[in-house]
């Protein structure tokens, strides 16, 4: 298997053959596009893109073959790929929830309508794939333009992920989580009492058909604690999924947080499965440990998740630009002390 270093060495030797101003087609990825896709990632990010796969053509082909990546490309007649966008598996455990993103355009074609055509093609693809039940995106908040486009494409605001990504310089960038449901059924959720009002609003805004059951802190513990934790050292972020919590659950979450902090994480996110009362009740120990509401992440587990988040550094609120009143209301929710 090619390593990242080998792939980058190869890419750095290749001349950029893309000429500006040429006619292109926008269509679904073909296996023979993989080399040109990797070349595009290199032209856009040089060696800085954190995910190795996008520099290694066989890895891109493999991800597409196994249904983890559904790209669309803008291609010149000579085979060069000048634009890319994709639906892809990322953090959510539910395989039917894909992330919408990775939009990029070759530097020679910036300021063109390529990204618009890629996004339109991806929307058509999204609606045609039977395995895709919902999609979400993370719209950056250093500008409102991505949020505006997301709204125009029918995505709904559901959460604000504070300080999620490293930005230019020393700052970080918050992201507005946006969501679009494609096919769903009525579900039952357990809403922790201290944030039930906020959850009710978010569910209504996302137009989700849910039966909401009020949950008290004394909610019964499960037989066993089941957590999954991912750390993204390059971004300084820990993400944990909570499936169920028993009596040792709160301690297990604290231990996971401490281990992630030792690896350099400064942002901690827990996604609590609201279909499972013991997982939803994890919101109380988290709130007592400095966590605040991040929002709702619909379909995260197939069932919806409550996002609780904690930052080791105060968020730079003045750098958060929000497009909609709903997004501003979500921001207010994320900054408020939980009313326990």
């Amino acid at each position: 298997m090619t390593t990242r270093a080998e792939a980058l060495a190869r890419l750095s030797q290749q001349p950029d053959t893309v000429q500006p101003g040429l006619v292109y087609v926008v269509e679904a990825f073909r296996p023979e596009d993989a080399e040109a896709v990797c070349d595009l990632f290199y032209r856009v990010y040089q060696d800085a893109y954190p995910v190795d796969m996008y520099y290694i053509p066989d890895a891109v082909r493999g991800a597409v073959a196994e249904g983890a990546l559904y790209p669309v490309v803008a291609r010149l007649a000579g085979g060069e790929v000048i634009g890319f966008a994709a639906l892809y598996r990322s953090s959510p455990p539910f395989a039917g929830l894909l992330e919408f993103g990775l939009g990029m355009v070759h530097p020679a074609y910036r300021g063109s309508l390529i990204l618009f055509h890629l996004t339109t093609e991806l929307m058509d693809l999204m609606n045609s794939l039977p395995s895709v039940e919902a999609v979400y995106g993370e719209a950056v908040c250093d500008t409102i333009i991505t949020q505006h486009s997301s709204a125009l494409f029918g995505f709904r605001e559901v959460a604000l992920e504070l300080e999620l990504m490293p930005g230019g310089g020393s700052g970080r960038i918050s992201c507005l989580a946006v969501f679009r449901n494609i096919r769903d059924r009525r579900r039952t959720l357990h809403a922790p009492a201290f944030c039930a009002g906020e959850l009710g609003k978010l569910l209504a805004w996302a137009e989700l058909d849910r039966e909401v059951v009020a949950l008290g802190e004394e909610s019964l513990a499960a037989q066993a604690t089941r957590l999954e934790v991912q750390t993204f050292a390059h971004a300084g972020v820990m993400r944990g999924n909570v499936y169920s919590l028993s009596g040792d659950g709160a301690a297990a979450m604290r231990q996971a947080e401490a281990a992630a902090a030792e690896q350099g994480c400064r942002v901690f996110q827990w996604f609590l499965n609201l279909a499972e009362p013991s997982a939803a009740a994890g919101a109380w120990p988290l709130a007592r440990n400095g966590y605040r509401l991040g929002g709702l992440m619909p379909r995260w587990f197939d069932d919806d998740a409550l996002l609780m988040q904690k930052l080791l550094d105060p968020p730079a609120v003045e750098r958060i630009n929000l497009y909609s009143d709903r997004a501003r209301e979500i921001q207010a929710m994320t900054l408020a002390e939980p009313a326990l």
């Binding site: 292109y24 087609v25 309508l113 618009f116």
Partner: peptide, 24 residues
């Protein structure tokens, strides 16, 4: 490119026009 994308969708919604690759 991001602004161009938002422009094209806004144009589509406000004026009911769709921009093809060739026109774009």
């Amino acid at each position: 490119s991001l602004a161009m994308t938002a422009m094209a969708v806004a144009m589509q919604n406000a004026f009911g026009v769709k921009v093809s690759v060739e026109e774009g």
